[in-house]
């Protein structure tokens, strides 16, 4: 439940788009929140950590000099709380135009021979089950209203199963397939679904990366790319865009070669 005052009301001359960002306390989520707020969005920001979330909200409301962001503390693994919270947020915002699912965790097993079911399960629960729990009711809402935009943050890691982190690969591949299915269901209802596949982004998560981090970008750059893709109603984007070509090559690398690689 948000303790923030009610956001400003929309009028024909001051129309407001309304969005939810799940996983907004730092990284891409926070950068996108700042970006969308600058574009006039009224936002509900969700994350587990209240102090970090409040900082983001306060900063947005201070810089825009308006009540544009409200904080809702929520852990996406508490899936049973989602329908009620979604209803509450939509009522608080006065509608809903955009939902961005950013929440994600990355726990590398720590070696090419290591396995950790607990970590893998946690990644699936947050990255994939959390997305299903949120985006299913959102999709139903949007298809009924015949409008809306859904954005899911996948990863280049979901494009191919690699030796480093099978659990993470699986969660992001599952998310990408789920988003594609939503897109195929919802485009005919006027709903736009965007899959974002970032490469390396300067966030806490990048610390989990083993080895080099080529084409590292800031969360702000990623947020910029996502905002452009939302406006243009793109289907899938890579950020930075060079990853499209890299992943094209990686996806088409024959298995007999790929099996021998160690990245």
């Amino acid at each position: 439940m948000s303790n923030y005052p009610k956001p400003v009301t929309a009028t024909p001359l001051n129309p407001r788009r309304r969005g939810i960002i799940i996983g907004a306390s730092d990284g891409i989520g926070a950068a996108l929140a700042r970006r969308l707020a600058r574009e006039g969005y009224i936002l509900a920001l969700l994350a587990r950590r209240p102090d970090k979330l409040d900082l983001v909200c306060d900063e947005i409301n201070r810089t825009t000099a308006e009540q544009r962001a409200s904080a809702y503390v929520h852990d996406v693994i508490e899936v049973e709380k989602v329908p009620e919270l979604l209803r509450r947020i939509v009522a608080d915002l006065g509608g809903l135009d955009l939902v961005v699912f950013v929440a994600g965790v990355n726990y590398p097993p720590g070696g090419l021979e290591k396995y950790n079911f607990g970590n893998d399960r946690a990644m699936i629960e947050v990255n994939l089950i959390g997305a299903l729990a949120w985006l299913n009711p959102v999709a139903e809402m949007f298809q009924s209203a015949q409008a809306g935009q859904i954005v899911g943050i996948g990863s280049v890691a979901g494009d191919r199963g690699r030796v480093g982190n099978p659990g993470y690969n699986t969660s992001k591949a599952g998310l990408a397939t789920y988003l594609e299915a939503l897109r195929n269901r919802l485009t005919r209802r006027g709903v736009h679904v965007l899959t974002v596949k970032p490469g390396f982004v300067q966030t806490e998560m990048v610390k989990a990366a083993q080895g080099p981090t080529p084409f590292l970008i800031t969360p702000e750059k990623a947020a910029d790319d996502i905002w452009k893709a939302i406006q243009k109603r793109k289907q899938t984007i890579y950020t930075p865009s060079i990853w499209r070509w890299i992943m094209l090559a990686i996806q088409h690398t024959p298995s007999f070669i790929f099996r021998k690689l160690s990245f």
Binding site: A10, G94, G95, E140, M141, S144, A145, A147
Partner: peptide
Amino acid sequence: SLSLKNFVQLENFGHSLRAPS
């Protein structure tokens, strides 16, 4: 009960404002 099937986009007469309910 509150079903998402009832969630529809409504407009004002001038088509200048939309709000789902």
